[in-house]
Design a protein around this nucleic acid. Structure first.
Length: 593
RNA sequence: GGGGACGUAGUGUAGCGGUCUUAACACGCCUCCCUGUCAAGGAGGAGAUCGCCGGUUCAAAUCCGGUCGUCCCCGCCA
């Protein structure tokens, strides 16, 4: 067996070329299409590599011709014959092997096939549950084949890069324990230990830190992680991380290795990235200028805070927002004066669907300032707006007034939508590090602080004395890598001293007892000579989305789940037998019929 | 937990209270014809109780309610 030859074939369909003309070759694969002209039959034979046209002529071999007449789409066959060039007029420039064809001399039907439940070449149009039920058929499409191949190449490149950089791949447990904080766990009952449960890892976070304690020094793993949260186009309950951790490192060490990883991945996909080092931006600056901690820098469209301009405003809604510690931000759309009223209404509705109370706008044209709110604006306010935002004739300006989190959240989405609809996004790639995150954020509902990254993240040196009394002022040593507005990786320098880690738990309202019960093993490990360490994890699936240009993560995962986290192919999740339940010491509540 | 879109032959869509509906069109499927196609072409044919349940109505694919399923979004995702 060589790279492509097997007992059934000498070549892959898509790999034969004019170099093999006049050679006898053997190919095997699926009938992609059949064109029967009565006297001559053409078959496009497909395998993983692509297509090859096979021809059979009745005059040459009537028996063989009849055999080919029986073929149908997706039948599996083996063909032997002589490769020949096509005549000038019959060349097909649309396929790789369009200048050659296989003159069949022998054909073996290896397997028949039922007619597929949906057309493979138009699968994109078909409802997704059906496609997932027959995922193995959809995977035959070249687009998904290419994505699988890309996934393989990216993994290989990343493994090679990290291995050569001295990182060791180490496997960590899948059956582990549930820990508080973070996402909901997937849970597995223990048969041997009644009433106890394993949890599937949300990430190998604690194990990789233990490996640092173990002296592994440089660890990586391409590993499945599990989070029982609701799904999105870019979110699956099980997904793959490129997980990395190293000892005796600071931020810049992780940045460097990460940039290498991303470059390696892009190279595998043939995507050109800007040269590292990638720019860095503080969380504060990202929020101020773009309203998000993962700004897309491929286009400008920056948010401008204009609260000061409206300090003495006549406009009730702005005034009341400012009086209650809210802010006002603006977004200028160049040339937006042409926008129709209905389009502006759509934007307002969109803003409301995202949680805003409304969205104010002004169109500046030859006829003056056109807007439902224009008459409330003083000349001075207008002047200041023009000065601060660079508003010009022909422009449109959006305003949003609310609490900062709402303003930033909604206006950053408006920014994205404008960029998309106004075609402001070029085909460049913009990566940046977002740094200097707050260490903690306040959870209104639970009335306590939560770790913004995770509870093992170290505070920035200048912030370490803010804990536990001024937690909101503490920054962390966390960092995110953002690519075209998508967070593709995040990590931090960790607490390696037990006192620091205990202080963190305290700030999170995790008592000594709870900390020792749930994280005791980590706290213990930190006391036995834990080296300074830190790391990062990349979402491989999201990375592949970017590299392949796919709109959904499902197209880079061979067997994804539906939005309801089911798998139409296997029928998972499924009920289990009473016996299984009993063995696991479980009872299921009466389900509504 | 919430908001939105969708569900009609195998697939994608049209029809959206009653005679251009005996539910249409395209692709696919089946039969036949056809020697240079590559979205082959030509002729013919089969295939749907309009997701499911209930209601309104003289009359429901069409209106209403519920339910199931798929997708998108918010919440959630350290």
């Amino acid at each position: 067996m060589t790279e492509e030859a097997t007992s059934y074939r000498s070549h892959y369909c898509g790999r034969v070329s004019e170099a093999e003309v006049n050679e006898k070759i053997k190919v095997a694969g699926w009938v992609d299409s059949r064109r029967d002209h009565g006297g001559v039959i053409f078959i496009d034979l497909r395998d993983r590599s692509g297509l090859l046209q096979v021809v059979v002529d009745r005059d040459q071999d009537p028996e063989l011709h009849d055999l080919f007449g029986e073929l149908r789409r997706e039948y599996v066959i083996q063909v032997e014959g002589k490769l020949r060039p096509r005549s000038e007029e019959t060349i097909n420039p649309n396929i790789e092997t369009g200048t050659i064809e296989l003159e069949a001399e022998k054909m073996e039907l290896l397997n028949e096939a039922k007619t597929p439940p949906f057309p493979l070449d138009e699968a994109e149009q078909t409802r997704e549950d059906l496609r997932l039920e027959y995922r193995y058929l959809e995977l035959r499409r070249s687009r998904l084949q290419k994505n699988l191949a890309l996934r393989h190449r990216v993994s290989q490149k990343v493994r090679k890069y990290l291995s050569e950089a001295g990182f060791q791949e180490v496997e960590t447990p899948i059956l582990t324990r549930s820990t508080p904080e973070g996402a909901r766990d997937y849970v597995v009952p223990s048969r041997v230990n009644p009433g106890r449960f394993y949890a599937l890892p949300q990430s190998p976070q604690l194990f990789k830190q233990l490996l640092m304690c173990a002296g592994t020094d440089r660890y990586f793993q391409i590993v499945k992680c599990f989070r029982d949260e609701d799904l999105r186009a870019d979110r699956q309950p099980e997904f793959t991380q490129i997980d990395i951790e190293a000892s005796f490192v600071e931020e810049k060490d992780i940045y460097e290795i990460s940039e290498g990883v991303v470059k390696a991945a892009a190279e595998a996909a043939g995507v050109d990235l800007p040269e590292p080092p990638f720019p860095r931006m503080s969380y504060e600056e990202a929020m101020r200028r773009f309203g998000t901690d993962k700004p897309d820098l491929r286009y400008e469209l920056e948010l401008e805070e204009v609260s000061d301009i409206f300090r003495d405003t006549e406009l009730g809604v702005f005034k009341s927002v400012l009086d209650s510690e809210g802010i006002i931000k603006a977004l200028v759309v160049k040339g937006g004066e042409e926008w129709s009223r209905s389009r502006l209404d759509e934007y307002t509705e969109y803003a409301q669907s995202l949680g805003a109370k409304g969205l104010a706008w002004i169109k500046v044209g030859a006829g003056g300032w056109q807007s439902p709110i224009a008459k409330f604006l003083s000349d001075e306010e207008k002047e200041e707006l023009v000065e601060q935002t660079g508003l010009e004739n022909g422009d449109l300006i959006f305003f949003m007034a609310d609490q900062p989190s709402v303003v930033n959240g909604v206006l950053s989405e408006i920014r994205r939508r404008v960029a998309r609809e106004e075609d402001l996004i070029d085909d460049s790639h913009e990566l940046l590090w977002v740094t200097k995150f707050p260490l903690l954020e306040y959870n209104q509902r639970q009335g306590r602080y939560e770790a913004m990254h995770h509870p093992f993240t170290a505070p920035a040196p200048e912030s370490s004395d803010k804990l536990p009394d001024q937690p909101e002022e503490a920054y962390s040593r966390a960092y995110d890598l953002v690519w075209n507005g998508v967070e593709i990786g995040g990590g931090s320098i960790r607490n390696h001293q037990v006192e620091q880690q205990e202080l963190m738990f305290e700030s999170l309202g995790i008592g000594e007892e709870e900390a020792s019960e749930k994280f005791g093993f980590l706290l213990k490990a930190l006391q036995y000579g834990a080296p300074p360490h830190g790391g990062i994890a990349f979402g491989l699936d999201r990375l592949l989305m970017l590299l392949s240009g796919e709109e959904t993560i499902r197209n880079v995962i061979p067997f994804p789940k539906t939005q309801r986290a089911t798998d139409p192919l296997t029928g998972a999740p499924a009920e289990i037998s009473v016996e299984q339940l009993q063995e696991l010491h479980l009872e299921v509540d009466e389900l509504d019929e």
